[in-house]
């Protein structure tokens, strides 16, 4: 078993929280894991991505080899396309549909979706709406984690426990909102699949 996931988004969207939840859950299942992230000169609003590798055998490279990723999980549609070189031919692109438009030459979102629909396996999720329903627009990242759940071979129980652990400091309400968001994302993915 091996799953290679590219997480993509914009600084401030909570990419690294998604990575942390999957990471915590994977450690609980005694899986091997490597999670690399690029940040640094990414002030709020810059490109942020993370490579997350899970396996039941030791993992060598921190980076996913180009053309071998199983899943691109985007919290922003343009960013999800940026890392296509890492996706394998049969891989999935799962992304939030809300554009984060902080550059003048941001393309027409319709064109972005068209580009995404060209891929054999894709899933577009209106994470912003689902997050608001769950109680907070900030939880869009957990909606996306939920939407990716069917592709990640880590049990739900462990993912939910990891969400609890990660957000515990922020109080029970935040924990519950994030778990709700996660479940909503999962349901959305299941409806399509």
């Amino acid at each position: 078993m091996k799953t290679d996931i590219i997480l993509a988004g914009v600084g401030g969207q909570g990419i690294l929280s998604i990575a942390a939840v999957i990471g915590l859950a994977a450690v609980k299942e005694d899986l091997y894991i490597k999670q690399s992230e690029i940040h640094g000169m990414s002030q709020q609003g810059g490109e942020v991505y993370s490579h997350l590798r899970l396996s039941d055998r030791p993992i060598h490279s921190d980076m996913i080899p180009k053309g071998q990723g199983d899943l691109i999980l985007g919290v922003e549609p343009l960013e999800s396309l940026r890392y296509l070189p890492y996706l394998k031919k049969e891989g999935w692109l799962v992304t939030n549909t809300s554009p984060y438009e902080n550059i003048d030459n941001y393309p027409d979102p319709g064109q972005l979706f068209e580009e995404i629909r060209k891929l054999p396996h894709h899933l577009l999720v209106d994470a912003a709406a689902l997050a608001r329903e769950a109680g907070s627009a900030r939880a869009a990242n957990m909606v996306m984690l939920g939407a990716a759940e069917p592709f990640i071979q880590v049990s739900d129980d462990h993912l939910i426990a990891a969400i609890r652990e990660l957000f515990a400091r922020k109080g029970e309400k935040v924990v519950e909102t994030n778990i709700k968001a996660f479940k909503a994302g999962k349901a959305a993915a299941e409806r399509v699949g």
């Binding site: 914009v10 000169m41 990414s42 002030q43 609003g45 810059g46 490109e47 343009l78 960013e79 396309l81 940026r82 890392y83 296509l84 070189p85 902080n102 550059i103 030459n105 941001y106 393309p107 064109q111 972005l112 580009e115």
Partner: peptide, 11 residues
């Protein structure tokens, strides 16, 4: 990377 995915320079 599709041409549509323009860079998002730090700002």
């Amino acid at each position: 990377t599709p041409g549509l995915a323009v860079p998002r320079p730090p700002s």
